[in-house]
Design a protein around this nucleic acid. Structure first.
Lengths: 194, 194
DNA sequence: GTCGAACATGAATGAGTATTCATGTCCTAT
DNA sequence: ATAGGACATGAATACTCATTCATGTTCGAC
C-alpha cells in the first residue's frame, strides 16, 4: 500500500481510482480489465494511475485487503448482540447474503484472488476462519452447540455461505434472502436426520 | 468440440494436448498459461495446437465439460449402493475430497471457469445441483431426511464440499480425509444444536 | 506574486503471445 | 510405389496492454 497521497486532492483521486478499479475488476475480471478502462471510468489520464499505485496487481491486492476488513466488520456487527451462537449463525448467514447483494464486485474480486493473488486469498479466508473457529469453540464450551471439530465446522459453514451467495445472489435476481438463510439455518441447526 | 481427428495418431495427439492443457491451466491459471507452454509440455509444435482446437478458450471449455462428466461419474459411483440418503451424503463427501486430491488441476480449472467461461461454470454446477436436489426430494419423500428446502440444501451441501476441498486438500498436505469428512458429516446429520 | 512540491497528462515504449500460414512429412489406399 | 488426405512445423503476423516519461498544471506557503 505505497504511494499515499499528501493532499486532499490526491486522497480523493486515489479513492476515485480505487472505486473504478473495484467496478472494472468486478465486471470484467482481472485479466480482461485494463488500466486504461479504470482510468477512463475515473475520468482521469492513464498515467495518473501510476501516481497512486505501483501496478495492476497492487490495486487488486489492496481491494482484497479492503474486502477483508469490510467483511469482518459487517459480520462482526451482524453478530453482535446475538443471544447465543445458534442465533449468531442465523444472523451472520443472512448478513453475508445481504452483503454480497450490496457489493457483488468486491465479492467477485475476492474469488478472483484465488488465482491472481493466492496469498491474499488464503489470508482473507484463513483469518476469517480462525476467528470463526474460536467462536465455535467458545460456544461449545458454553454448551450452546454440540461438541465437534470446530476447524472443520468453520470451513463447512463458510462454504455454505459462499455457495448460497453464488447461487442465490450473484446468479439470480435477489429472491427472498431471509427465506434462503432460514432454510439453510434450519439444516445447520438440526441437520438432515429425521 | 470441433476438429475431431480422423486417425489414431491424431486422436493420441489431441489427448496428449488435452492433458498438457489440463496441467498448465491447473498450475498457472488460464491467463498466465500460454499455448506455447502447452505444446512444449506435449512435445509438439506450436501450430499443432490449432489442428485440434480452435482457440485457447475452446480447450478450456472442453476441460470444464470433461470435468463435469468425470465429477458426476465419480459421485454417482461413490453413492451407488448406499443404504439411505444420509449414508450417501457421507460417502459422497469423502469421495469428493478424494477426487479433489486426485485431480487438483481439473478442480482448479472449474473454479477458473467462473471468470473465463461463466456459462460453462454455471452449467457445471447447475446440472450437478439439479440432480442433487432431486435426490434430496426423493429421500425426503421416503422419510430418510427431515423435510426442508431441497434446492437450498443442495447448494449448501455443495458449498461444504467445495470449501473443505479448498482448505483441507488444495491448501494442505492431505491430512486424514476420512476424519474431515466424518466431522463435517456429523454436522450435516445432526446439526449444531445441543 | 512567485517558488516548489504534488499532481496530471497521454503519446511512446516494450514485452508478451494468440493465431495464421507456407512449407513440409507421414501413412494408407490403391 | 505413388497419390492424396491427414498431420506437423515454427517463423511471421498482428494485436493488446502495462508501464514509463517528458512535459505541463495546480495550489498553498512565504
Amino acid at each position: 500500500m505505497d504511494k499515499i497521497p499528501k493532499t486532499l486532492r490526491g486522497t480523493a483521486r486515489r479513492e476515485q481510482l480505487l472505486r473504478s478499479a473495484e467496478k472494472v475488476f468486478g465486471e470484467k475480471g482481472f485479466a480482461a480489465a485494463s488500466i486504461a478502462e479504470i482510468t477512463r471510468d475515473a475520468d482521469t489520464a492513464l498515467g495518473t494511475f501510476y501516481i497512486y499505485f505501483t501496478s495492476k496487481e497492487q490495486v487488486f491486492r489492496e481491494l482484497v485487503v479492503e474486502m477483508g476488513h469490510l467483511t469482518r466488520s459487517v459480520m462482526s456487527d451482524a453478530v453482535t448482540g446475538a443471544p447465543d451462537r445458534l442465533d449468531a449463525e442465523r444472523r451472520g448467514l443472512l448478513a453475508f447474503l445481504r452483503f454480497v447483494a450490496d457489493r457483488p464486485s468486491l465479492y467477485r474480486i475476492v474469488e478472483q484472488a484465488r488465482f491472481v493473488d493466492p496469498e491474499a486469498y488464503r489470508d482473507y479466508f484463513s483469518s476469517f476462519a480462525a476467528a470463526y473457529r474460536d467462536q465455535l469453540r467458545k460456544a461449545e464450551a458454553a454448551g450452546q452447540i454440540r461438541p465437534g471439530d470446530a476447524e472443520v465446522r468453520a470451513w463447512a459453514l463458510m462454504g455454505i455461505a459462499k455457495n448460497l451467495g453464488d447461487r442465490f445472489v450473484l446468479w439470480e435476481e435477489h429472491g427472498d434472502l431471509e427465506a434462503i438463510a432460514e432454510a439453510a439455518f434450519d439444516m445447520i441447526r438440526d441437520g438432515l436426520s429425521p
